[in-house]
Amino acid sequence: MNKRMNSMTNRSRLAQLSCLLLVAILSALATAQARPKSTLNHRHLPHIPFARAASAPWVAPRVQTSEDQLVYVTYVLSLTSGGTNIYDIAPGGPELVGVLDVGGGGPVAVDSQENVYVIQTNLDGNLYQLDAAVYRYARGSSEGTKLFDAPNIGAEAMTVAADGTVYIARPGTGFERLCGREVLAARLFRPGSSRRLGRRLPDRHLARSEW
């Protein structure tokens, strides 16, 4: 009788352990799939420091009054810092006329008022952009305003509509698994809003096929 009861207890424990194991496996799988993976080719990954201070921001005073075309180039300095160069396309040739200490976290967008929008670098070890903190700078200004922070969005592309709405594209998970490349969805930010609206447009868009 005791033997039989012991056997039943063991079976019950085994069933409990199996359940726990199943839950653990499912949780691990869910976590693994929660965030899109970078398509970075690790064989060519350079050493990138975790942090490195960007140089002090500056913009030549003449940029504010000039009507010259400006070209912005944004870049990575470390996994957590970046910057943006401002080039004046002057008649005498392009000239570096400013540096912003924010950038590198994705593309650059410019609105109809010539405000520039940049995203601060916040990369993980696979060069996947984590939180997307979006800053806006008026033309000629070296002081930006942080508009909002989109956590774990993996920003890959950004554009600003004529009404000031900011669209950010991010890698998608489902398509990436299928095709091994990053496919973008989009999220919408309303001008003046300090937080993400959470409206997600249907998956589509693609930006990067390689790093």
């Binding site: 070209v71 870049y75 910057g83 392009p94 967008a109």
Partner: peptide, 25 residues
């Protein structure tokens, strides 16, 4: 029509994007 190199800052690791102002809307 125009060419230039992004040769600063010295510790630039790689470029992430380009924009132009005014931009086509």
């Amino acid at each position: 029509a125009t060419t230039f190199a992004v040769d600063s800052p010295d510790d630039l690791i790689f470029i992430m994007g380009i924009g132009v102002s005014p931009s086509y809307l």
